[in-house]
């Protein structure tokens, strides 16, 4: 289980997160939606300490940490229990697909090479890339690169995987292969927090949808409730923009 309480983050004079709470149970898939600039990426980056939040606390498993005071050791403990899938994949260009997946295990966790390789080959197989182990990122399509990104996260066997718009940099015809890998991951009851505007994914897979705007959670609930019967005006406005067809049903 992962719980975040009252997280705040400011960039200069820009209040980006104004007290967000987030609770995700084991095996849950939480989808976060919201307009561009509402702080979704910042929230995920703060959870993983790629950005240092100004206030708030996080609990993952048995670890409880105040963002601001977290020591290097606590940061590393939290990072061990979280993994991140990036919008732009961010694969290591000097390593093969296999190397990318093994890196965290071998260099950070000191897992013996043989063992790490076996684990890595298995997760690459899981994302359908068993035959691409020796390919470098530049030899892979965007969809394949993102699937390596997901394998890299899976290999670490984290408490939660954070996805930041994993399909928004992809050509439309490549979105499907990544979504189906993500659905397969979800079916294994791996805890996921996913920022995405892919409604099909949210409706089919999400346990809960959170709508963020202006650095706060405006509304949350089951996918059908948020998408089909939103209570807040801001949520309706946002949905009208990303789902033009709802215009006609009003």
């Amino acid at each position: 289980m992962i719980e975040i309480r009252d997280i705040h983050k400011t960039f200069g004079h820009n209040l980006v997160l104004k007290g967000v709470d987030l609770k995700v149970d084991k095996g849950e898939v939480v989808v976060i939606v919201g307009p561009s600039g509402s702080g979704k990426t910042t929230l995920l980056r703060c959870i993983n300490f790629l950005e240092r939040a100004d206030a708030g606390e996080i609990s993952i498993g048995d670890t409880h940490v105040a963002f601001r005071q977290a020591t290097a050791r606590q940061v590393s403990t939290i990072r061990k229990q979280t993994a991140m899938v990036f919008q732009n994949y961010n694969l290591f260009n000097n390593m093969t697909a296999l190397g990318n997946v093994m890196e965290g295990l071998v260099t950070a966790r000191k897992v013996p090479k043989k063992e790490a390789e076996a684990v890595s080959r298995a997760v690459l197989d899981q994302v359908g890339l068993a035959d691409k182990c020796d390919a470098y990122p530049s030899q892979l399509s965007g969809g394949q690169q993102q699937r390596v990104g997901i394998a890299r996260a899976l290999a670490l066997n984290p408490e939660v995987i954070l996805f930041d718009e994993p399909t928004s940099a992809l050509d439309p015809e490549l979105v499907g292969e990544v979504l189906s890998v993500m659905k397969a991951v979800a079916r294994k009851h791996i805890t996921m927090v996913v920022v995405t505007h892919e409604m099909s994914f949210a409706l089919e897979i999400a346990s809960r949808v959170i709508f963020m705007d202006g650095g706060v959670v405006v509304e949350e609930g089951a996918p059908q409730e948020i998408f089909l019967r939103p209570k807040e005006e801001r949520t309706r406005q946002f949905l009208r923009r990303i789902l033009p067809e709802t215009d006609y049903t009003i």
Binding site: F86, N90, T107, L156
Partner: peptide, 15 residues
């Protein structure tokens, strides 16, 4: 972004 991915999988700055 590659450095961020490295930190995310647990590498230290030096690694």
């Amino acid at each position: 972004g590659q450095a961020e991915a490295a930190y995310a999988v647990g590498l230290t700055r030096l690694q």
